[in-house]
């Protein structure tokens, strides 16, 4: 199949970018979206033009490195699928595909389709962990955890930190990402201990990074390749109120 790509090209974080059109010829429907870009890049290099820069690594939908907003949708239109797992058979011969980077002030563009997502790491640094050092942990079976709680915690922990939630949100809010981590740890007895300071500190850092606010629409949930639920946001809203009061009253 033959396609037309409109790709955002931007030399670096300082210069402004623009869309450039490329023809993607003889694309096999069995290719993944990134393999299609590989083919386009090979052609660009041979014609003396610098390749399109995009983030990717595992190419099996788990590392969270790949991004790309494809026709206005983070990771493309196929639900519960990362860009690396999206295959060209979901497009039609002759399609024009617009490819853009994640857009958010907190995720500045580094080059072309590559953005800086270290804001997420800083949010985790502010409290997204259980403060236990190596050694001295009690036996793994010392604290029984109801299967339902462990399953719910897993559902939240399935987040791959790709940032599609921020990219999808018209306010570039990071609530789904932050609430997934808060929920994962709060649902387990090990994480419950530090819940108050975790919630307050992580939300403080989230605000400081310049992410927008949640307006309860759900674009994030719809775009999430791991189907992280909006329930996590509700849970975090609840925990934040609790944390504020607890911090005040105790």
């Amino acid at each position: 199949m033959n396609l037309t790509l409109r790709v955002w090209r931007q030399k670096n974080s300082i210069t402004s970018g623009q869309f450039v059109e490329y023809a993607a010829k003889d694309i096999s429907p069995d290719m993944s979206f990134l393999e299609m870009l590989d083919v386009v890049n090979e052609g660009l290099i041979l014609s003396g033009e610098e390749q399109i820069a995009f983030d990717h690594d595992c190419r099996e939908g788990i590392c969270g490195m790949c991004s790309l907003v494809i026709n206005g949708k983070p990771h493309g239109a196929l639900p519960a699928t990362t860009t690396c797992q999206l295959h060209m058979r979901f497009f039609k011969d002759g399609d024009t595909i617009t490819i853009e980077p994640w857009r958010a002030s907190a995720f500045p563009v580094i080059k072309d389709l590559v953005v800086d997502r270290t804001a997420f790491d800083r949010i985790i640094q502010s409290g997204g962990y259980v403060s236990v050092s190596t050694g001295g942990a009690p036996d793994g079976n010392a604290i029984p955890i109801p299967k339902e709680d462990a399953d719910k915690a897993f559902d939240a922990a399935a987040c791959i930190g790709c940032g599609a939630c921020v990219a999808a949100c018209k306010n570039a809010s990071a609530m789904l990402f932050v609430s997934a981590k808060v929920s994962h740890l709060s649902l387990l007895p090990q994480g419950k201990v530090e819940e108050t300071r975790r919630v307050l500190n992580m939300i403080g850092q989230m605000d400081a990074e310049g992410f927008g606010n949640c307006t309860n629409i759900g674009s994030c949930e719809a775009a999430c390749p791991k189907e992280i639920s909006l329930d996590n946001i509700a849970r975090m809203n609840r925990l934040y109120a609790k944390a504020l009061l607890k911090n005040k009253l105790s």
């Binding site: 206005g72 490819i99 853009e100 958010a104 002030s105 999808a168 018209k170 570039a172 629409i217 719809a222």
Partner: peptide, 29 residues
């Protein structure tokens, strides 16, 4: 204030299409 910080958080929109999920009510709130 929230609307202002939201705009600051996301100054650039997408060329390729609309946001994933939204209704008339929340777009016009």
């Amino acid at each position: 204030q929230l609307a202002h910080s939201n705009r600051r958080a996301r100054p650039v929109g997408y060329d390729g299409g609309k946001v994933v999920a939204s209704t008339l009510a929340n777009r016009t709130i």
